[in-house]
Structures are given as structure tokens and as C-alpha cells.
């Protein structure tokens, strides 16, 4: 059974990719295997984990459940497009500095979902961050550092320089015991 390939131009991170692929291929497959953009990962390919999340027209969607042909003439954003030149996006910098990326496998999807959230709401509460990211599974972090990183990035995007509290970097001082860690957190430079 032969089926004609579809050839079309996808606009990914503001750049045109003209690619040929069978019509039944998902955006996930085309991004990774035709565009060479392997930053987008996959964990189930069934819409159950959020790992493959990308933005299409600014909305967080699962690239494993969207045919690439459906994204023609739409704006696609992936983790590879987050940096501004050689400068990390505040979300990226916060994730790197806090250890919100441990193994880093769910990270691209979490970053893209977070970007969509912050574009819709520049000052989300912790509960709103948890809700927005509740479709993205992570097995390393327990999610705490991710929430802190999104809060930090949101603050920086608002122009506020408010680093997370020392607890986020050092844990809480053991009560009733001599402080054994230095108590001030160091603000980390962008990059």
C-alpha cells in the first residue's frame, strides 16, 4: 500500500521547515524525525503524560495527538525556540538554577506549558501553576522545584528581582539546631 507523501511548510519557532511526510504522521514525529528538532520528547504517545507538549498558536497541545498536516499555516513553538540569541529565557534560567530539570526529559514539555501559562497570566499563584502543569508528569522532582522556578521566572518577566527563599536552595534550617548552612541564597546570573 503506497500513500503519497504530503509536502508542506511548517513554521517552527519562526523558521520555515519544508518537509515531506506521510499524512498520518503526528507533529511529534515530524518535528523529531523530519525537522531534526529532537528537543521535543515523548513518554507515551497517547496523550497521557504531557512530555511532548509544544505550543501551536500559543496554546499548549500534545504533539503526539496532532497530525502535522493540521499545523500548516500555524505558529509552532518548541523548546529549541525559547532562547533569545544565546540568552536563556527566564524560565530556562530558573529551571537550570533551581534543579527544576533533573533528568531533563519532561523539561521541554513543562517549559512550553509554563510559557503558555505565563503569556496568559504573568502573575500566577502556586495553585494556578499546579493546575496549568497538571497534565505534565515528572518523576524526578516531586514538582516542587518546578513550581518555584515558574514563580521565579514570572517575577523576572514582570521585572521583579525576587529570588526564591533560602529554603528552596538549602532546605529549611533544622529547628532547634545550629544553622549549618549559610542562610542567604545567591541570586544567579542569567547565563
Amino acid at each position: 500500500m503506497t500513500h503519497a507523501m504530503t509536502t508542506l511548510t511548517l513554521r517552527v519557532n519562526g523558521e520555515d521547515h519544508t518537509v515531506a511526510f506521510p499524512a498520518h504522521h503526528t507533529l511529534l514525529e515530524v518535528l523529531r524525525e523530519r525537522c531534526g528538532l529532537t528537543g521535543t520528547k515523548h513518554g507515551c504517545e497517547l496523550g497521557e503524560c504531557g512530555t511532548c507538549t509544544v505550543l501551536v498558536d500559543g496554546r499548549a497541545v500534545l504533539s503526539c495527538l496532532m497530525l502535522a498536516v493540521e499545523t500548516e499555516d500555524r505558529s509552532i513553538e518548541t523548546v529549541e525556540g525559547l532562547m533569545d540569541g544565546n540568552r536563556l529565557h527566564p524560565l530556562q534560567a530558573a529551571f537550570a538554577d533551581l534543579g527544576a530539570a533533573q533528568c531533563g526529559y519532561c523539561t521541554p514539555g513543562v517549559l512550553m506549558t509554563s510559557k503558555a501559562l505565563l503569556e496568559a497570566d504573568g502573575d500566577p499563584s502556586e495553585a494556578e501553576i499546579r493546575e496549568a502543569l497538571s497534565g505534565n508528569l515528572c518523576r524526578c522532582t516531586g514538582y516542587h522545584k518546578i513550581v518555584q522556578a515558574v514563580l521565579w521566572a514570572a517575577a523576572r518577566l514582570r521585572g521583579e528581582d525576587s529570588a526564591p527563599s533560602a529554603e528552596v536552595f538549602y532546605g529549611s534550617p533544622p529547628p532547634g539546631q545550629e544553622a549549618s548552612s549559610s542562610s542567604s541564597s545567591e541570586a544567579h546570573d542569567d547565563d
Binding site: 496523550g47 499548549a60 497541545v61 500534545l62 495527538l65 506549558t113 502543569l133 497534565g135 505534565n136
Partner: peptide, 8 residues
């Protein structure tokens, strides 16, 4: 389901 699924 989840937020990205409700976007689709």
C-alpha cells in the same frame, strides 16, 4: 483529563 488535552 488535563489542561493540554482540554486545549485539543
Amino acid at each position: 483529563s488535563s489542561p493540554p488535552l482540554r486545549n485539543m
